[in-house]
């Protein structure tokens, strides 16, 4: 009988203290509207939005190990849910988010069942196809406004603050949901699939069922962020709803923070958005170049994210020896 080592505490959610710091930072972000600056509200609302999308990606890409390049599809669907409801005369954030959750869950299951049978690059390409296909579909459906886009009625004067808190709540929900999912049987099943799908199957885990579950919960997270964004933005068109940035940034954020952890996406979103904001302020034309440089350096030196660095035993030497970049 071989003793199965119990997983180290925090191995599946990331370091506990980092998660607590993240919660503390979230509490701090409650006070952003007190600054009475629309710019701050908008900037931090975007950071929260990216964090929520990043959590959505993290479940399938980080925990389950299926790298998706199409999660922006869920964000876009969420945004269009707000547009459709507004057109029908319903201007209520709870209704927007509710509809986005339902539609995205159904859509993710319908799409996930066939494409989650694919692995590796094939899965990635299929997800990209889903996102591109939806962009074209939205451009050609007249009841969604076609390529001209659709307007969403704004609620009240204080809307900037309302939408900020709505996005904050969505992000907090994603963060806490990830924490509890990761520690549940569900989370262990996801990780088992990531580490070795065949072995997981032998242990009695149905890969398809769990993969679709991870994909659908992630879809709901991205969709909720999209619904709030759509309502907050007041206008949605295909290039905005399915923007390339919204596809790539959340992935980069999850990687920087730490894939498969409960605070990685949030920390990644804070740092990467913060860096982008500072670069944009100080380098009028070259900011995109520097930002790209940061991403390259990050992949080279922190391929497993900051959470890995925090949990590392063995210091600098261990870190360097782990890096592929030094293995020529």
């Amino acid at each position: 009988m071989v003793a199965v080592p119990k997983p180290r505490r925090g191995a599946i959610t990331g370091k506990r203290w980092v998660f607590l710091v993240s919660l503390g930072l979230m509490a701090g972000l409650l006070f952003v509207p007190a600054g009475h600056s629309d710019y701050l509200n908008l900037t931090f609302r975007n950071i929260l939005m990216y964090a929520a999308m990043s959590y959505g990606w993290n479940l399938i890409g980080g925990y389950t190990g299926y790298i998706s390049f199409g999660n922006v599809a869920f964000f876009g669907i969420g945004a269009y849910c707000s547009a459709v409801l507004s057109k029908a005369g319903v201007d209520n954030l709870f209704a927007d988010v509710g509809l986005a959750l339902i539609v995205n869950a159904l859509f993710a299951v319908a799409v996930g069942l066939p494409i989650l049978r694919l692995r590796g690059h094939y899965f990635g390409i299929a997800t990209l196809g889903v996102a591109l296909g939806l962009t074209d579909l939205a451009s050609n459906l007249d009841f969604l406004g076609g390529s001209g886009g659709a307007s969403i009625k704004q609620i009240g004067e204080a809307h900037f603050t309302t939408y900020y808190y709505a996005m904050w709540a969505v992000t907090l929900a994603c963060m806490i949901a990830t924490f509890f999912i990761a520690r549940s049987k569900l989370g262990y099943a996801f990780v088992a699939i990531r580490e070795n799908e065949e072995a997981a199957q032998v242990l009695g885990i149905s890969p398809t069922r769990y993969k679709v579950t991870a994909w659908a919960i992630g879809a709901m997270m991205g969709g909720a962020a999209g619904a709030v964004f759509g309502a907050a933005n007041g206008f949605i068109d295909p290039p905005t709803a399915f923007a390339v940035d919204n596809n790539v940034f959340p992935i980069a954020m999850a990687i920087l923070g730490g894939m498969g952890t409960a605070s990685g996406p949030f920390i990644g979103a804070l740092l990467l958005s913060g860096a982008n904001e500072l670069l944009q302020q100080h380098f009028l034309k070259l900011h995109a170049l520097f930002f790209g440089g940061i991403i390259v350096l990050m992949i080279l030196f922190l391929p497993r994210g900051l959470m890995y660095l925090v949990g590392l035993r063995g210091g600098m030497r261990r870190w360097l020896s782990d890096l592929a970049v030094f293995r020529v």
């Binding site: 980092v18 710091v21 600054g35 920390i267 804070l270 740092l271 904001e277 925090v310």
Partner: peptide, 18 residues
Amino acid sequence: IRLFLAAALVFAAFGVPV
């Protein structure tokens, strides 16, 4: 590293609006 990370987070959260 922990110190750096904590500092970076605070910076990112509250240092952006210069």
